[in-house]
């Protein structure tokens, strides 16, 4: 689904990301963990062609993400607030994003049904613009918009941050309910959440992949805790 080859990103002399090879299969639940500055957001930004690699390439399905826009039709993403439009109400925002994927307002509302519990009655019909909402509610809006249109690939940066405990649990359920063929990439500081929803965990340190755990999901947590306690 996604193939990374010799990917690196440098700012001046500082190498912030250096991944010789990484392949993410269709339907995989892929978790990216690492401390601040490990390169998680940089990697996701490269996958979305928001920044240009110093060397190497990212292929999504068969196309290079920086050579074609085809991947956008089947990729949903939420990185940060720069993916939100502050002067719209949540409904208007969902309709705008849904419209990009050819969804009518009725389609959008039907789709959003599944987010009812996550939204907790604070998002739809709130009478507020997105810019006036709390960080947590903004994140919920961003996550829901990323999933609009049932894209083949969903990329979420730190989806659990800023959410209250109930919302975190609900989000994990929502992720569990995603269709099997959907590929999900999330990054997180929170080891418990990410190990719970992902079969594959990749650990980044200073831009390099230092662990790639695919088997033995029961031991993942131990291994990660040992790493973060030690470093």
């Amino acid at each position: 689904m996604i193939r990374i080859e010799n990917l690196s990103k440098q700012y001046g002399d500082a190498v912030v990301l250096d991944i010789p090879e990484l392949t993410i299969e269709a339907g995989q639940r892929f978790g990216l963990v690492g401390n601040n500055g490990a390169g998680k957001t940089t990697l996701f930004s490269l996958l979305l062609d928001l920044i240009q690699p110093t060397s190497g390439s990212v292929h999504s399905k068969a196309v290079r993400v920086d050579a074609s826009e085809d991947w956008k039709a089947y990729t949903g993403s939420y990185i940060d607030e720069s993916f939100l439009i502050g002067f719209l109400t949540p409904e208007e925002y969902f309709n705008f994003v849904g419209g990009l994927y050819g969804m009518s307002p009725a389609d959008v509302m039907a789709f959003l049904q599944r987010f009812e519990i996550l939204f907790n009655g604070e998002i739809l019909d709130s009478g507020k613009y997105v810019r006036d909402m709390s960080k947590g509610n903004q994140k919920k809006i961003g996550i829901a918009a990323a999933m609009l249109g049932e894209p083949d690939i969903i990329i979420l940066d730190e989806p659990f941050a800023n959410l209250d405990p109930s919302s975190q649990i609900r989000l994990k359920q929502l992720i569990g309910e995603l269709p099997e063929q959907q590929t999900l990439l999330i990054s997180s500081h929170d080891l418990a959440h990410v190990t719970e929803v992902c079969q594959r965990i990749v650990l980044l340190e200073r831009g390099k992949v230092i662990r790639d755990i695919t088997d033995a999901p029961d031991r993942t947590m131990e291994e990660l805790e040992a790493y973060f306690a030690g470093s």
């Binding site: 993403s77 720069s82 993916f83 439009i85 994003v97 990009l100 994927y101 249109g149």
Partner: peptide, 14 residues
């Protein structure tokens, strides 16, 4: 500029 990333990362044909 505030939501330019949305326009560039999502399916918004230039």
């Amino acid at each position: 500029s505030r939501y330019f990333n949305l326009l560039m990362a999502r399916h918004a044909p230039l």
